[in-house]
Amino acid sequence: MTVASQVKQSLASLKSMHASFQQFALTSTDEKAQRAFHEAMLLTEEVIADVKERVSQLEREEPQYHGK
């Protein structure tokens, strides 16, 4: 597996985590838990932004991996 595809896999996992956090933030009834999940969701968003940046860098450096 190439580096680019590995990073893309992580990105997909991160997106799934983001969705799960969002879901738990909405369905939890405890306020503290809601807040913790919400913060986790925001943090995941930051990480996702960084990784997206890295993916486009990789694609620029090695165009043969583009879109794979």
Binding site: S10, S16, M17, S20, F21
Partner: peptide
């Protein structure tokens, strides 16, 4: 979710 977090962190 916990497993996914651990995996991404390790990656």
């Amino acid at each position: 979710l916990l497993a996914a977090m651990k995996k991404v962190q390790a990656d």
